[in-house]
Amino acid sequence: MTQANELGSEFFLFPILSSFGTDGLWYVFLGVVLVFLFYSIFLIYHWFRYGMNILTSILATIIYSVVSGVILVTMIISFASLLS
């Protein structure tokens, strides 16, 4: 496992994060992304299964997906930059 001192000086300021190492951070990252994706699938399923207005459900799905995509990309880029 890669140790915290290979992750850059920023990690020394966070004892919890530095104890994870690279593999641990990967698990945290994948965990957050997977939880978010499953949660999103359930949300969108509910909008279309139980929603009374299909247009509202479509609009909500578009707004939710686009903004989530932007945040996810930011998260992935900053994570990659963190490990590089």
Partner: peptide
Amino acid sequence: TSLTFFLSSTWTLLMWAKLFSVWT
């Protein structure tokens, strides 16, 4: 810094999902 970007984007993502859960 990339760490603060990573942490804040993770937090933003979770709160964004929470906001839509309230809306749901």
